Simulated assay, not measured.
Amino acid sequence: MKQAGIYVNDVFCGILREDEEGFHFAYDEDYLTRKDSVAVSPTMPLTEHRYDKEMMFPVFDGLIPEGWLLDIASASWKIDRRDRMSLLMACCKDCIGNISVKPLSDE
């Protein structure tokens, strides 16, 4: 299972996981209690319920480079272009915008 910590405005907000069933995102309980917490996307409002999807969530998939930059990232890190979770974890630690992704160890 691959998993990554998701940060909004440099504040930990939840965990994104990939397993054989697809992708799962859940907001952190502490993040939900903060007055300044914001959703990662309008399509993923703040909730204590887990989001599940067979394919990568669009808000996270949109962070992954495209075109020639994807070619460079894929070749440099030897990651298959179709391995969206690995690309997200390798390329999106310091993205443009307010979302960042940091790999977590496998559990």
Rank of each mutant, 00 (worst) to 15 (best):
M1I: 10
K2L: 15
A4R: 06
Y7L: 07
V11N: 10
F12P: 01
C13H: 06
I15H: 06
L16P: 02
R17D: 07
D19W: 06
D19I: 10
D19M: 04
E21P: 01
G22R: 08
G22Q: 10
F23R: 12
H24E: 11
H24M: 12
H24G: 11
F25A: 14
F25R: 13
Y27V: 00
D28F: 07
D28V: 01
D28P: 13
D30E: 14
Y31R: 02
Y31L: 05
Y31M: 06
T33G: 02
D36M: 04
V38T: 13
V38H: 05
A39Y: 02
S41V: 07
S41E: 07
P42D: 15
P42F: 14
T43A: 11
M44T: 09
M44I: 15
T47R: 12
T47H: 07
H49K: 15
H49A: 15
H49L: 14
H49T: 14
R50M: 15
K53G: 10
K53E: 14
E54A: 10
E54Q: 10
E54S: 08
E54W: 03
M55V: 11
M55A: 11
F57P: 12
P58Y: 09
F60Q: 04
D61H: 09
G62C: 11
I64M: 01
I64A: 02
I64P: 00
P65S: 10
E66W: 05
E66L: 09
G67W: 06
G67T: 04
G67Q: 08
L70V: 11
D71E: 13
I72H: 07
A73V: 08
S74A: 09
S74T: 06
A75C: 05
W77V: 02
K78W: 02
I79F: 01
I79P: 00
R81M: 05
L87Q: 07
L87T: 01
L87Y: 00
L88Y: 02
C92T: 00
C92F: 00
K93I: 04
D94T: 05
N98K: 12
I99A: 05
S100L: 01
K102Q: 09
P103A: 15
L104Y: 09
S105R: 03
